[in-house]
């Protein structure tokens, strides 16, 4: 029975692929089912995009979005022309790359570890506990980091460096340490949450593949290498492409609240978002803030198109669109 179906299927598919109209008809109920989702995205996401024009306008609260006067690219100029331009673009991109690579590796590893665990009770405990950091706001994370790195009473200085006879470090005035600190904080906060996606994908796999492999005498490591990782690949690719779209955005809380906006750390903690926030803090300039967002989106868009194009060339099914 199984084999007979498999034999027919490609033929059916081939036949139906010919007819655009029959496919349209077949999927009509599914289109209909997804209609509310379409409408929602149009209302919630596409209609407000009218506001993107404000990136090129001097927004007047009295005149509104449409009647505000155009001002060319004036809203963009504050982002360039000072030493900060180089600092913020460099930081934003480099942190994102590091976070993407390490974050993915870390999350996938944890998902596989969880999947390999036998004890169901412990598994549940781990799964709950590693989610905790994700539940804290970045302000709270900032306090926790301070508890560790405070100059006088911080855990690292008072319990590690001083007892070892090393000199206490004034962490909040030494910019060079912060790339490492922020990476650790980012991974710590996000790994539990990120690994859920991979774990959910893992437990949903056809277990018969593993059973077959076990019968063939494959070791755990071989199973992971030749079954688990290939099966996770599409998810990894999709999540990576989505992250690339946000290549020029940054987690504001991580870069602003965690270093507690300490000036001496700006060279390694300033990203596009924190610079924009600081610049616009007191004048609520809607146009300038949208200009920055627009620039980030456009650059992210270009990166995604390139990435998606490349993926499509290699493996059409893994592409995002």
């Amino acid at each position: 029975m199984k084999s007979s179906k498999n034999a027919i299927t490609p033929e059916i598919r081939a036949k139906e692929r010919k007819s655009f109209r029959s496919r349209l008809k077949r999927y009509a109920p599914l289109y209909l089912l997804a209609l509310p989702s379409f409408i929602y995205l149009i209302i919630n996401n596409y209609m407000p995009m009218v506001g993107l024009t404000l990136a090129f306008k001097k927004f007047s609260f009295a005149k509104g979005i449409f009647a505000s006067p155009w001002n060319g690219v004036e809203n963009f100029s504050y982002l360039f022309g000072s030493k900060w331009a180089k600092i913020m673009f460099k930081n934003t991109i480099l942190y994102n790359l590091v976070f993407l690579v390490l974050g993915t590796v870390f999350a996938v590893t944890v998902a596989i570890l969880l999947n390999e665990l036998v004890n169901a009770k412990l598994k549940q405990v781990y799964q709950t506990v590693i989610l905790i950091p994700h539940l804290f706001s970045m302000v709270i994370v900032g306090y926790i980091v301070f508890a560790f790195l405070g100059g006088t009473n911080g855990f690292v200085n008072s319990h590690i460096l001083t007892p070892l006879g090393a000199k206490a470090i004034n962490w909040y005035t030494k910019a060079k340490y912060w790339p490492v600190i922020l990476t650790i904080v980012h991974l710590w906060k996000g790994f539990g949450f990120q690994s859920i996606v991979y774990y959910a994908t893992l437990v949903g796999f056809d277990q018969s593949l593993y059973e077959a492999a076990m019968v063939d005498g494959a070791t755990k490591w071989q199973q992971i290498k030749s079954i688990t990782i290939p099966l996770l690949k599409p998810t990894v690719i999709i999540l990576t492409i989505m992250s690339l779209g946000r290549m020029f955005n940054s987690d504001f809380g991580l870069f602003y609240q965690v270093p507690q906006n300490n000036g001496m750390l700006y060279t390694t903690t300033t990203t596009i978002d924190t610079y924009v926030y600081r610049a616009l803090m007191m004048d609520n300039d809607v146009g300038r803030s949208l200009a920055a967002g627009f620039l980030q989106s456009i650059l992210g868009f270009i990166v995604v198109m390139l990435a998606n194009f490349t993926v499509r060339k290699v493996d059409e099914n893994s592409a995002l669109f």
Binding site: Y78, S82, N261, M264, Y266, T270, Y275, R278, A279
Partner: peptide
């Protein structure tokens, strides 16, 4: 805004 950030920095 560039000066503002420098002031906050130091």
């Amino acid at each position: 805004v560039a000066v503002d950030s420098v002031v906050k920095e130091y």
